[in-house]
């Protein structure tokens, strides 16, 4: 029997010899550091804001983010969340985006958030005209889902040489390398082409249908004045996509710290209680 297995094993080894599995995978992602990667790290909200700008001006022409709504941008933990904070010079309460470190502020409901309203209004989304029943376009409201660039999968493929641009809602969770993978793809083009495809060493199979999206520096003019180098834009959009995939990360980590401290205290007390109960009992 054992001999038979050995023979079978040898035969199979010949058959399987030299499988080209490895060539199919892209290179491991670049070693890039993001502030959210450490166990207690949080998002760099300025980068998330800039990343949204890159998404809105570049990525969103082909990629949907169907699980996000414009309101998400202004919800607690979002890049445009507004807080009512006291201005220490004037003593007045005023609304501002983001909570400055160490400050207390009342979260302003996203329904009243002018930034989110303005961002949403900048996109046209389809709707049904209730008097005619026809499909029309109207400016988006905060409660609308992100505009889908294509009506359906076929339209998306038709516009992209048959390739389907993936939805980006959870892209950093759906790719093994996460945000670093996104960054590597965006900065990993070699400049060569094979037919209609582009060589990108970080992409599985090394040939990607997406033309280099961040082809030149300054493609986006950042509203905060940051110089939009290709590297900067790739970093920012990767950070934004990570936020989009995991918007409650900061709340999660904060609660995690509290829970673990609590459990450590509880464990210590339970250990003492356990010892006290068993005191005098040999075991």
């Amino acid at each position: 029997m054992l001999r038979r297995i050995a023979i079978a094993a040898a035969v199979a080894a010949v058959a399987l010899g030299g499988s080209a599995y490895a060539a199919n995978e892209g290179r491991p992602p670049k070693d890039v550091h993001f502030s959210f990667q450490s166990p207690l790290g949080s998002y760099d909200m300025a980068a998330v804001q800039r990343g949204f700008q890159v998404y809105a001006q570049v990525c969103s022409t082909c990629h949907s983010m169907e699980h996000l709504s414009y309101r998400n941008l202004g919800e607690p933990g979002g890049p445009f969340a507004e807080y009512s904070v006291r201005n220490h010079q004037t003593g007045e309460m005023e609304n501002r985006v983001g909570l400055p470190a160490g400050e207390h502020g009342e979260y302003v409901d996203v329904v009243n958030n002018p930034y989110v309203r303005a961002i949403a209004a900048g996109f046209q989304v389809p709707d049904i005209d209730q008097t005619t029943g026809e499909v029309t376009q109207r400016p988006a409201r905060p409660s609308d889902h992100f505009r889908n660039p294509f009506a359906n999968e076929y339209a998306a493929r038709a516009a992209n040489n048959g390739a389907l641009p993936p939805d980006l809602s959870v892209i950093t969770l759906a790719r093994a390398g996460g945000a670093a993978y996104v960054f590597s793809i965006l900065t990993g083009y070699t400049g060569e082409m094979r037919g209609t495809q582009y060589v990108n060493d970080y992409f599985p199979g090394r040939l990607i249908s997406m033309p280099p999206p961040l082809a030149s520096d300054g493609l986006v003019t950042y509203s905060d004045g940051t110089t939009a180098t290709r590297d900067q834009m790739a970093r920012d959009v990767a950070q934004y996509l990570q936020w989009a995939a995991d918007p409650h990360m900061e709340a999660r980590k904060t609660m995690g710290v509290q829970v673990i401290i609590f459990l450590l205290v509880l464990s210590a007390l339970l250990y003492l209680a356990y010892k006290a109960v068993w005191r005098g009992q040999s075991h």
Partner: peptide, 14 residues
């Protein structure tokens, strides 16, 4: 069980 919960929470939150 309390120790087990620490491991549990580490995964859930981090």
């Amino acid at each position: 069980t309390s120790l087990f919960l620490i491991l549990f929470a580490t995964f859930v939150f981090f």
